[in-house]
Simulated assay, not measured.
Amino acid sequence: MSRRAVLSGASGAREGGAGASARYLAPGWFTARVFNPAVALLTRRGLPLAGSRVLAVRGRSSGEWRTTPVNPLEVGGVRHLVAPRGTTQWVRNLRAAEQGELRVGRRSEAFRAVELPDADKVPVLREYLRRWAWEVGAFFDGVGAGASDEELLAAAPKHPVFRIEPLR
């Protein structure tokens, strides 16, 4: 599979749910084998980079914990998770489980995840790009934090966004 493999159509997307088309941009070798493992290791050791956390979600088939580094984002006092690469495995697992944990060091926060409809994603995507464009901007097809609301709304179906609601 190529680094920028794109899946489209209804396959992989939840029927009737947010994101009518599924899109996944696979990470390159360096990201998958070096960067993400390094960020996850540092975060597990209690040294998060740029506010990173390790997302833990039960696998939708295996029930085993699956982990990946993520960048939670607070907008208007509400925390969110944004999937810059599209409908990744963690997105599919979170849609199925509807809850997970955000971990840093020995601390773990259980949460409920609520996927946002595309119309509600604009301010979250704008802030996400403002804060992390240096890391994820390439996955937004030229759309940046300074884009119009219409441009961000057009990009919204490609990027699942979840509101994080603490369980404890």
Rank of each mutant, 00 (worst) to 15 (best):
A26C: 09
E74P: 00
A22R: 05
G59Y: 04
P69T: 06
Y24S: 10
G16C: 06
A18C: 06
P27N: 07
N36A: 13
A5L: 15
G59Q: 01
S2K: 11
R92C: 00
A13L: 00
R4C: 05
G77V: 00
V39W: 03
T67W: 00
R79D: 02
E15P: 13
A18H: 09
P27K: 09
L81A: 05
R53F: 01
A97I: 01
H80F: 10
P27T: 09
T68C: 14
L94N: 03
A18K: 03
S11A: 07
V39H: 04
G51M: 05
A5F: 12
V57T: 03
L47D: 00
S21N: 13
S8Q: 04
A18V: 13
V39F: 04
T68A: 15
L7Y: 09
G86P: 06
L49W: 14
S21K: 10
L94M: 03
W29Y: 10
R23T: 09
F30E: 12
A97V: 02
L49C: 12
A38F: 13
G63C: 00
V78E: 12
P37M: 08
G17Y: 05
V78A: 15
R33A: 13
S52H: 14
Q89R: 15
A40M: 10
G46E: 06
R92K: 13
A83N: 10
A18Y: 04
L49T: 12
P84G: 10
N36E: 12
R14S: 11
R79C: 01
G16S: 07
V91M: 02
V39Q: 02
S62A: 03
G16L: 03
W90R: 05
E98V: 11
S61W: 04
P72G: 08
P69K: 08
P27A: 04
L7P: 11
H80L: 04
V70Q: 11
L81E: 05
A38C: 09
A18I: 00
S21V: 12
R14M: 08
A50H: 12
R3H: 15
P84R: 15
N71D: 10
A40S: 14
N36S: 13
A10T: 13
N93Q: 01
A40E: 09
G16D: 14
A20M: 03
R66F: 02
P37K: 14
P69Y: 06
R3S: 14
